[in-house]
Design a protein around this nucleic acid. Sequence first.
DNA 1: TTATTTACTTGCATTTTGCAATTGAAATGG
DNA 2: CCATTTCAATTGCAAAATGCAAGTAAATAA
Lengths: 138, 138
Amino acid sequence: MPESKPKNRCPIDYALEVFGDRWTLIVLRDLMLSGKRHYRELMTSKEGIATNILASRLKKMEADGLVIRKHKPEDKRQVFYELTDKALDLVPVLLEISRWSVIYDKHTAAPPELMRRYQEEPQQLIADLQEAARVRQT
Amino acid sequence: MPESKPKNRCPIDYALEVFGDRWTLIVLRDLMLSGKRHYRELMTSKEGIATNILASRLKKMEADGLVIRKHKPEDKRQVFYELTDKALDLVPVLLEISRWSVIYDKHTAAPPELMRRYQEEPQQLIADLQEAARVRQT
DNA sequence: TTATTTACTTGCATTTTGCAATTGAAATGG
DNA sequence: CCATTTCAATTGCAAAATGCAAGTAAATAA
């Protein structure tokens, strides 16, 4: 990595560079919480991401160390995207954002059971979601 | 409010609509954690926001119920932006994002004392930051 | 061997952003 | 007072990012 940015940057600013756009968090959500792993699966999110945007985001996410692009041995057309620890460590951020949205969006569609568990045993839920995502990658 | 969006929306998606762009979180950070309240103060962030973008973001943030625009009685040119509870409830999100950035950005500039307190007594730190922001608005 | 699936890429119109200059209202200085 | 400065924006335009539709290459299936 070149990595020759102006030292000492605000943590919010760094986060925005990595996932501060309209689509990266959507893709991360689908990979981390919805169990999607393939390009074609990521295309089906109901927010309707354009194929060129998805491709460019996955490329940037790989460059930023959030995902690793791999080929399926049994079908070499197929690609799947594996989450790194750097990405999995965003689970608490996604949950905290969700908690906020549930309060302020009256049309929210957050799974109630998930949010109840987040309130009652946040650490355990985080660990479970990360573990579930890790298990899927094989 | 009109509020006629397609019912049942994902909480991540709602959050992205409200603050999922390059600048809104920067402005929120400056209002919530750096104690800025005036347009001219928000212009000085080292990320260098353009004046037209700042104006449009503040307008959208007001429409989304994050800030309230008020005039200073003693100088009617001056405007200050007051944070709503909806905005102050994003303090945990900002801190969680910061925690992540501190781990993965080797050039991070997060105040170590702040992050130490977040680790040791998160609830108290959140309450203190919200209270400090509230006190400033008068 | 032809058709289909998968993961993209390309071209182009539309939208958003960034930059510089300008504005108008209100305060301040002489 | 009247000119100057401050403050919070707005305007115009170029550049970049996004969205949409069509196309492509490699691998598999029929």
